[in-house]
Design a binder for these strands. Structure first.
Lengths: 241, 241
DNA sequence: CAGTCGTAGTCTGTATACAGAAGAGTGTGC
DNA sequence: GCACACTCTTCTGTATACAGACTACGACTG
């Protein structure tokens, strides 16, 4: 059963999902033995999964100590987005550039733009209650966009670094669901990014991506600071940093 | 003997040194059992070290297969420097900015500038043979500069990503020792970066860093393409990518 | 009653054992 | 002589065992 890497991968995916979805609260202990028993694996795959998650920033890991689900801090969120704003606009621009040289790389983005337009139309026809129900559909599109950028990214270092940051972003999204209004503006931002990329306009893609990240960060901060009483001690929203 | 993390760290440092210095050739197999016997450790710490090195790009690791010392390719070097040119100029600029707000962060850079000037003077007084002997001294200064930037970098994501790339850069330096002429221009480039940072001139720091990286890449490419017969099969200089 | 020492429980780091799988090398058939 | 197949060695993935260290709780003492 060796070369399959089944257990280790399974434990990793399971833990990642539990942490991203906040089923495991920030600060919760991640005991290797305990997790192993719960997930039906021995310590070895659990150890490996914890190390991988620590690399992605989903786990706070200090060598001798018990690993914990990574805390969420306002400073950490700002740093994350500052870093993303350095990487992702560049990646979007490079995809746009590559697209104008080779049309084939644009195929996924044309398709996504189409999906987005279809979704937009149906979304606007719903009342607010039904709109909330279609959140997941929208997230799927945005997630597909991010993955498409990563896949189309020529520079493997850039692609890997952006990918490693995805899971943290996903968790933050679970932490603060934004309202329909933010969703509509986000939709518009994605349309702008997609149009820029499909038109091969690197500069516009870069600017659109930067703008989208800035808006997302702002919405996130608004949401976190207004909810800090709700989450309070649970989420360990330490403002340090 | 638990909370010390001695073995794992020791194996990591040892392997890192061996790979950086090219004592272990690119493509060489890294068998867990064999390394464990050689380094007097069991497979567990060796496994962990190999994973860490894979993250830093010093080891090519595919789940089921034997890990190998990372190959060196011209495309890989270009991608590495393209990525570094995205990160490090930004870091240098942010340090310059932080320095103009708080003088204390500039202390290491003032000291490095002083060390650089002293070295420069003594270096120019030597003949070429003696100059080669002082390479290490210069490398120490440049390495200290890079570490100082990392340490002063406010954004932990940026700092960590830059740090993770250091070991690859160090290995490339070992692969292609540049001549005294390149060293003098590199020295000049470092002087420019240090002056910009200590003057709190973010824009100049960014430009100087970008220029330094571009020059370093060019020197590296020149060196690699002229030496490819020398290294040839040994170094697996696959041009793919 | 408070503070301190001791002990038990739990956790990580490391070593070792076992099973499945891949690759190399050899031998045979064409 | 070459190609294919089989076996055998070796390697990784996983499980488990052991040792040192830290924590927390409780009892004892001042």
């Amino acid at each position: 059963m060796a070369r399959a890497t089944g257990k280790s991968e399974a434990v990793y995916e399971r833990l990642k999902g539990d942490i991203e979805s906040l089923r495991m609260r920030p600060g919760a202990k991640l005991s290797e033995v305990q997790l192993g028993e719960e997930l039906g694996a021995s310590r070895t795959p659990v150890r490996e999964a914890i190390r991988r998650l620590a690399r992605e920033g989903l786990v706070d890991f200090v060598p001798g100590e018990v690993a914990r689900v990574a805390a969420i801090s306002l400073g950490g969120v700002r740093a994350l987005f500052e870093f993303r704003m350095l990487l992702e606009p560049r990646a979007a621009a490079s995809v746009a550039t590559a697209g104008s040289a080779d049309e084939r790389v644009l195929a996924p983005f044309h398709e996504l733009l189409e999906r987005l337009e279809v979704f937009d139309e149906s979304f606007r026809a719903l009342d607010s209650a039904a709109q909330v129900g279609s959140y997941q559909q929208f997230y799927d599109i945005t997630e597909a966009f991010d993955q498409a950028v990563i896949a189309a990214c020529r520079n493997p270092y850039l692609a890997r670094t952006i990918r490693d940051l995805r899971s943290q972003t996903v968790r933050l999204r679970h932490l603060s669901h934004s309202g329909p209004r933010r969703m509509l503006t986000s939709l518009e931002e994605h349309r702008a990014m997609l149009k820029a990329v499909t038109h091969g306009d690197a500069q516009a893609a870069e600017a659109a991506c930067r703008h989208h990240l800035a808006q997302t960060l702002q919405a996130l901060i608004d949401s976190l600071t207004s909810q800090d009483l709700t989450f309070g001690t649970d989420v360990s929203l330490d403002v340090a940093g």
